[in-house]
Design a protein around this nucleic acid. Structure first.
Length: 270
DNA sequence: GCGCTTGTTAAAGT
DNA sequence: AACTTTAACAAGCG
């Protein structure tokens, strides 16, 4: 799922493939995927070039020669693919940027939760969208300041992009597991030490995830992520349930803030 | 073939 | 009024 590490991986991919080629046109299968009108986008990009990128949380900004900025949000299932031959066109390539080199950059979005837009001013956009500093940039003090005034559970607070930007459902579980904090602990009741642990855990989990290019299968085996159901590694002797990689207690699944949440009841006491 | 999943946001609730 | 919680959204996949 496109959380911060995936979007960072996409950003590097786009930088490595799609800069400094003149855009001839953009195909958009469904205009609902755009946050600007199709005409505006087409007009701004035709003859233009991508010149760089910036990422804040899960938001990818693509800079262009004219100064216009393309915004990309990958929703839950978005991805990018660079290709030349039509036979290599991936499924659900609903938006395609065509370059004069014959290559194309596809914005893949199976579930249409993804969005592409056009803005002039990145900082203004971030302010308007209330997007907090990127999770890799946020300091312990930043975290403390926000946590002090939140009396919701830590999990939804960490998921809130105006707290810290880039954490999604899976990574929040991983971070809380690493910091040994129960997902339903009330944010403003965390101790200084616990916030320090959270901060360190965020940095550690994100750094590892980016190193492994967000391929969850390649994460260290003591990460909680392997407990999730997509993992088809053979643990079936535990009856479909998985054990804590640290203490072998059975991992619990609960719904916190309406999202599926996995945690170790032993390592993460309430 | 039904139910679950994901991130974001609008709406409802406190 | 301001903060928190819940549900809806689209659609593929198990």
């Amino acid at each position: 799922m496109p959380e911060l590490p995936e979007v960072e991986t996409y950003r590097r991919y786009l930088e490595a493939t799609s800069l400094y080629q003149t855009i001839t046109h953009v195909d958009v299968e469904d205009h609902k995927l755009l946050t600007v009108s199709y005409d505006t986008l087409q007009h701004a990009l035709k003859g233009n070039q991508f010149t760089g990128t910036r990422r804040v949380g899960k938001n990818l900004f693509v800079l262009t020669r004219t100064g216009a900025v393309v915004t990309m949000h990958f929703g839950m299932t978005g991805d990018l693919a660079y290709y030349r031959d039509e036979e290599d066109r991936p499924s659900y390539a609903r938006i395609v940027f065509h370059f004069n080199t014959g290559f194309k950059l596809a914005f893949i979005c199976p579930r249409k939760f993804e969005r592409i837009g056009l803005i002039e001013d990145i900082d203004g956009y971030l302010r308007h969208k209330k997007i907090a500093p990127d999770a890799l940039e946020a300091s312990t003090e930043d975290l403390t300041r926000v946590f002090m005034k939140k009396k919701a559970s830590v999990k939804p607070v960490l998921l809130d992009q105006s707290t810290v930007a880039g954490l999604g459902n899976w990574i929040v579980d991983e971070v809380l597991f690493d910091a040994a904090i129960h997902p339903e602990r009330v944010a403003n009741q965390l101790s200084e030490d616990e916030i320090n642990r959270l901060h360190a855990a965020i940095r550690k989990v994100l750094t590892v995830a980016i190193e492994r290019e967000a391929v969850y299968r390649d994460f260290p085996k003591d990460f909680l992520i392997h407990v999730r159901e997509w993992d088809d590694s053979p643990h079936s002797e535990s009856g479909g349930h998985r054990l804590c990689p640290r203490c072998t207690t059975r991992i619990e699944k609960a719904y916190v803030g309406g999202r599926a949440t996995y945690f170790c009841p032993q390592c993460q006491r309430e």
